[in-house]
Simulated assay, not measured.
Amino acid sequence: MKRLLPLALGSLITAFASTSAFAVPVSWTDWTSSTDSFSASGSLSVGSESVSVGYSATGAHAFVATGPGTNYWTGSAYTNGTVDNAPPASDIIALSQGGTVTITFSQTVIDPYIALASWNGNTVDFGVPIEIDSFGPGYWGFGTPLLNPGGTGFFGSGEVHGVIRLPGSFDSVTFTHTSESWHGFTVGVAGIAPVPEPETYAMLLVGLGLLGFAARRRQQAA
């Protein structure tokens, strides 16, 4: 019995550590301004780096929340996948008229996440492969995101609340969506692409120079 107890405790600690390591802390956008019904701007922080985020749309949105107000990011829908933290309570863009939405980043970001609130009966397509990271009960109820055959978008069956992930590196994200009273979103990232140091560029130039020199020597020898 005494030997079994340490083994059991060790298994629990290992399982807890694995679960904690699996959760990804996401840097969500702090939306700060919207001067019309088709655009907004904000920023997100990854470590010491600040990334400017822009949003524009061909269809008018219902509203953009940039300060204290209703928290639409309640429920377990946002943290029952790989995301460690739900979006902040005061930041959401509520889309209304269908069309094309473009999100831009001032730096290349890694694995952007899109949090969804109340996507009821919407057909959405990102044009690139997406992953359904999580979904579940939310502010307006419950729904299921059904991936399209190409895996590039989904149909919202019921009141979809959750998070989707776009694997890879992006300077911008574009998606199309259909109209509804309103359905909300925000965007976050797991990290940003590293910017090469000046020494890296110098080494690259030296390497290219050596390759060019070797190519000329081969041509002369021939």
Rank of each mutant, 00 (worst) to 15 (best):
K2I: 14
P129S: 06
A57Y: 03
A202D: 13
V51C: 04
G162I: 01
R217S: 07
G121D: 01
T19M: 12
Y72E: 08
S172T: 04
L12F: 10
I192S: 08
G69Y: 08
S96T: 08
V124H: 05
T186N: 05
S33L: 10
S56Y: 05
G143C: 05
G42A: 02
G209P: 03
H161V: 00
F175E: 03
T14K: 15
G10L: 08
F185Q: 02
S90E: 07
V206K: 14
A62L: 13
P167F: 04
T14Y: 15
F126E: 02
A221M: 04
I164P: 01
P112F: 02
V53P: 03
R3G: 10
H161P: 06
M1D: 13
V195T: 14
G54M: 05
A77C: 11
T82Y: 02
G47D: 08
T102I: 02
T35Y: 12
S96I: 09
A193D: 10
G99M: 00
T186L: 00
A60P: 10
S34C: 13
G191M: 03
A65P: 07
E180T: 15
T29G: 05
G143V: 03
G158F: 11
L4G: 06
V124C: 04
Q220G: 04
P149Y: 03
S106V: 03
R217D: 06
D84H: 04
T104A: 09
W28P: 00
A40H: 06
G81E: 00
G75W: 07
H61Q: 08
F154A: 00
T174M: 01
F213H: 11
G121F: 02
S27Y: 11
N71T: 08
P25M: 04
N85R: 10
S39N: 06
G191H: 09
L7V: 13
S96W: 11
L44F: 06
P196E: 01
E199W: 10
P112E: 07
S41Y: 12
V163Q: 07
I164W: 03
G67F: 12
G138L: 05
V173H: 09
G153I: 00
D91R: 15
S20W: 14
S34V: 06
A15P: 05
M1N: 14
F38M: 08
S45Q: 14
F22N: 11
D125V: 00
P6T: 04
E159A: 15
S11N: 14
F175K: 03
E131H: 07
Y113S: 05
Q219K: 15
G10W: 00
P149D: 09
Y201W: 12
I192P: 06
S52C: 12
N85V: 09
I130K: 00
G47M: 07
V64L: 09
I13C: 14
I103K: 12
S34R: 13
N120G: 10
T108E: 14
T14W: 13
P149E: 08
A222I: 12
P129T: 01
S157H: 10
P112W: 00
S96Q: 15
N71Q: 11
D111C: 04
L205Q: 14
V195R: 13
A77L: 07
V26W: 09
A89C: 12
Y72T: 09
S181H: 12
L205E: 15
T108Y: 13
P137M: 09
S181C: 06
L5A: 09
D133L: 05
